[in-house]
Design a protein around this nucleic acid. Structure first.
Lengths: 203, 203
DNA sequence: AAATTTGTTAACCATTTGGTTAAACTAATT
DNA sequence: AATTAGTTTAACCAAATGGTTAACAAATTT
């Protein structure tokens, strides 16, 4: 087996851990399972990451670093409000189709351990809404959009984009449709969602 | 301790299990912990519910039975579309403030085990969107609202209402606000959300 | 009131689980 | 060739965990 050994053992482990943790969560994941997935001995996990907790944190921070730029793109670009909404929706949905377990993983583990968000806020590239907030205020003063708290608009944007991925089994049930049709609904949302938001706030 | 013994042991166990499972999930919950919470011996759990899996399923179905009527209220009432949206938003938010762990619990466990939704669809009172769908079509034909797929509107309604509860730790982080202020934001949403939706779809 | 069924417990058990250790192997360094 | 430092493994361990058993208590039935 002459597999590309550019990939160090450490990253092999991290990728395996990512795959298992994101599917099963911290509590559901087993160290042995991660070792198997990585094709190595269980002791190696501890050699590189000391404990399950530390390995988990490495995976979590890694996942978060992937998601955060998506948000910053909306919040801190120089686009107009409308373009931000459009771009975010488009980017986010195609991004999440590539990483289907990611949003649920982050939200769920943060619920399990809410203090963990503190450790993230201090990190570089942690999204802030200051610029977005200002832009919303300006647009309201212009009369371009109707009065709305930036926080509420921000929550709405995230909700409409993220929720359908998190709640997919439930929604598939309610709508009684199969995976294929649900995926199609999601793809429609690429434009659907931004239209919905833009209409909701335009004066 | 002359505690009201109207409450049978079986329900005491179910309540304890509900509390633990909803906070920690299937994988994170411990049978001993549930026994402690119920103030009984661990063997009794098995006496009444045989296994962790069955106890969990009892809790899950129970939780779902609590949530489903909230949805049926929107979907199958005779109210106008606007009133449905208003009432659902108002009801749902106050309902969830009373049961904060419930939405995340359901969504998360359904992600862990997507086949489980099948067991629910057959249950009595499982929400269906047929009536809602028809109503949306009528409103579009009337010209009351703009064209939109009923499925998409349904997803949007749920997303805007449920997401803020599921993602609260994350959102608190992004908005850098404390519990008190976040709770206030949620309460504002009682009217905020329905206005947002109604504006988004009105022609 | 004796017998039987139902409810409850303490002690126990097999398995799983995160984690450790000491030894073996590998690759660079002396 | 010998030494050293880093990497990997098999075997092991203690604690935790879901579940069982056998004995006991409290109702319920006969």
């Amino acid at each position: 087996m002459t597999k590309t050994k550019d990939i160090t053992t450490e990253t092999t482990i991290l990728n395996a851990a990512k795959s298992i943790f994101q599917r099963k969560g911290m509590d559901g994941a087993r160290m042995q399972e991660i070792a198997d997935e990585a094709g190595i001995n269980k002791a190696l996990l501890h050699y590189y990451y000391r404990s399950k907790q530390l390995l988990f944190e490495a995976v979590f921070k890694n996942a978060f670093k992937l998601l955060a730029p998506q948000l910053n793109k909306v919040l801190n670009s120089d686009d107009t409000l409308n373009d931000k909404i459009k771009n975010f929706t488009k980017n986010y949905i195609s991004f999440t189709i590539k990483h289907p377990y990611l949003p649920n993983f982050i939200i769920n583990e943060l619920n399990r351990n809410p203090e963990f968000v503190q450790k993230l806020t201090s990190e570089k590239h942690f999204p802030t809404i200051t610029k977005f907030k200002q832009q919303v205020i300006e647009n309201i003063e212009n009369g371009t959009i109707k009065p709305i708290k930036a926080e509420q608009l921000f929550i709405n944007i995230l909700a409409l984009n993220i929720f359908p991925f998190i709640a997919s089994p439930l929604l598939k049930g309610f709508l009684s449709i199969n995976d294929e049709n649900y995926k199609q609904l999601l793809e429609e949302r690429t434009t659907e969602v931004s239209n919905f938001i833009i209409h909701a706030i335009k004066s």
